[in-house]
């Protein structure tokens, strides 16, 4: 009796116009349904319908590319919530950190997770690169995708670096001061670099000034770091990610000796 009713309900649901408009495949384990599960889903269709068997092995891929992308998503997600509370100016920035610590519901976990995911992403990107190198997966036809990957590596480091300043505490401030002081020494473009002085480059028109929006790490630098960190670089990273994934598919999926 109960089973009968359950079957009836199931039939009503799965035959309804609403259900059928969303899910376009049955549940039987058939080849067709397996392919449809991938093809019919906008997120899953990043995958090919079939993958090489060895690509499933942890010892082959180390899962590092996927983990890196997952961490990128985590960072976007937590980043949006952090953005709700954060003001990129000298008066509020540090206060907002304290606000996260004491007032915002789950604020501490939110900030911790953003920071640790960022550090972890730096590590997983390096390991992903190491894996790709060790399996020789940059060899033809995947040369260009390796180059795209190097861009993504640089973007990851820069994203992490710009985020470092946003807390506006001693740690971030001096780390960014040390980092951007290097830009002073850029040949031709920095005022302390080779031939910079001869070209009339000063502390007020060199490349460091352009990065910081000033000659010291101040309010303008905070705003610039914020815009790079929250808008410009994530958007660029997403573009490169799209190319990276697309090329992976076009070049034959996970490299393998097949």
């Amino acid at each position: 009796m109960l089973t009968e009713q359950r079957e009836k309900i199931k039939e009503i649901v799965t035959e309804s116009q609403v259900y059928k408009s969303i899910f376009r495949r049955g549940f039987e384990d058939t080849t067709k349904n397996r392919v449809l599960a991938i093809f019919g889903n906008v997120f899953l269709h990043l995958h090919p319908p079939y993958v090489k068997r060895h690509a499933l092995k942890f010892t082959h891929s180390w899962c590092m590319g996927g983990i890196t992308f997952l961490l990128f998503l985590v960072l976007c997600f937590t980043g949006v919530f952090l953005c709700f509370y954060y003001h990129p100016d000298k008066i509020n920035a540090y206060r907002d950190m304290k606000y996260f610590e004491y007032d915002v519901p789950f604020g501490v976990v939110l900030r911790n997770m953003h920071r640790w995911a960022a550090h972890l992403m730096v590590i997983t990107v390096w390991l992903h690169m190491t894996r790709v190198f060790m399996t020789g997966s940059y060899k033809p036809p995947r040369e260009f995708n390796w180059v795209v990957g190097v861009f993504l590596l640089v973007l990851t480091l820069l994203l992490s670096f710009t985020g470092y300043l946003l807390t506006d505490d001693q740690l971030g401030f001096w780390a960014v001061t040390v980092g951007t002081n290097m830009a002073r020494a850029t040949p031709l473009l920095g005022h302390e670099g080779p031939f910079g002085e001869q070209l009339g480059v000063t502390a007020y028109n060199d490349i460091r000034f352009a990065l910081l929006g000033g000659s010291v790490v101040g309010g303008n630098a905070l705003l610039r770091a914020y815009v790079w960190h929250c808008v410009a670089m994530p958007v660029t990273a997403i573009l490169f990610l799209a190319v990276h994934f697309w090329r992976t598919r076009k070049d034959g999926g996970t490299a393998g000796p097949l």
Binding site: Y94, M97, E101, V108, R111, N112, H114, R115, W116, H119, V122, L157, S160, F161, Y164, T167, D168, D169, Q170, L171, G172, F173, W174, A175, T177, V178, G179, V216, V217
Partner: peptide, 23 residues
């Protein structure tokens, strides 16, 4: 917890002052 030190102060240079660990 993610580290949070004192508010930034351009007159107080920590010694050593270090870049983020990956740099």
């Amino acid at each position: 917890d993610a580290p949070l030190e004192e508010p930034s102060d351009s007159t107080l240079t920590p010694n050593p002052s270090k870049a983020p660990w990956y740099f």
